[in-house]
Computed example of a mutant assay.
Amino acid sequence: NVQVQINTEAPGYSPLEVEQRITYLVELAITGLPHVESTRSVSRYALSQVTVVFEKGTDIYFARNLINERLQQAKSEMPSGIGPVMGPVATGLGEIFHYAVHAKPGTLQENGEPYDATALRTLQDWVIRPQLRLVPGVTEVNTIGGFEKQFHITPEPSRLLAYQLSFDDLVAALEKNNANIGAGYI
Rank of each mutant, 00 (worst) to 15 (best):
G146V: 05
L160T: 08
G112T: 07
A183N: 12
V4S: 13
A63H: 06
P136F: 07
L132E: 15
N65Y: 10
V2T: 14
T139N: 06
P114S: 08
Q124S: 14
R133I: 13
L161F: 09
E95Y: 00
A117G: 11
L161T: 08
L123V: 14
Q3M: 08
P84S: 09
P11Q: 05
T31M: 11
Q72T: 13
R21L: 07
V171K: 13
L16K: 10
T23S: 09
G106M: 02
L93N: 13
P114F: 00
A183Y: 14
P11A: 11
D169N: 14
Q49M: 06
T118M: 11
R129V: 13
G94I: 00
P114R: 03
Q109H: 06
T154V: 11
Q73N: 11
K104M: 08
L174D: 06
Y163F: 11
S166D: 13
L71F: 10
R133H: 09
E37C: 01
H152M: 13
E27S: 02
P114Q: 06
K104N: 12
A117L: 14
V141A: 02
Y185W: 12
M78F: 07
N111H: 04
A103P: 06
A117R: 12
N7I: 10
D169I: 10
I6G: 04
L174I: 15
L161Y: 08
A172L: 12
V50Y: 02
G57N: 04
G106N: 14
L160A: 13
T107I: 12
T118L: 02
G137E: 03
F54G: 01
R21E: 13
S14W: 05
L16I: 08
R129N: 10
L160Q: 08
G57D: 07
V135R: 04
V2P: 15
P105K: 01
V53I: 01
E17K: 05
L120S: 02
Y99C: 09
D169R: 08
Q150I: 11
N68F: 00
S14G: 03
R64F: 06
P79D: 13
S158W: 12
V50N: 03
S48W: 00
T31I: 04
P157Y: 07
G146S: 01
L170V: 12
L16D: 10
D125G: 11
N180Q: 13
T107Q: 14
L108Y: 08
A103T: 06
T23E: 01
L160I: 06
R40S: 11
G106P: 03
K56T: 09
P155A: 01
Q73C: 02
G57E: 01
L16C: 01
E175L: 13
V26S: 03
D168Q: 15
D125N: 12
A100V: 12
G94K: 00
R40W: 07
Y115Q: 09
H102F: 15
P88Y: 00
L123E: 06
I144Q: 09
R70K: 15
V101A: 14
P136L: 11
T122N: 09
P114W: 00
G145M: 04
V26T: 08
L93F: 11
A90K: 08
V135N: 03
H152C: 01
I128A: 07
A172F: 14
A179K: 07
T23Q: 03
L160G: 02
A90E: 15
Y13W: 00
S80Q: 15
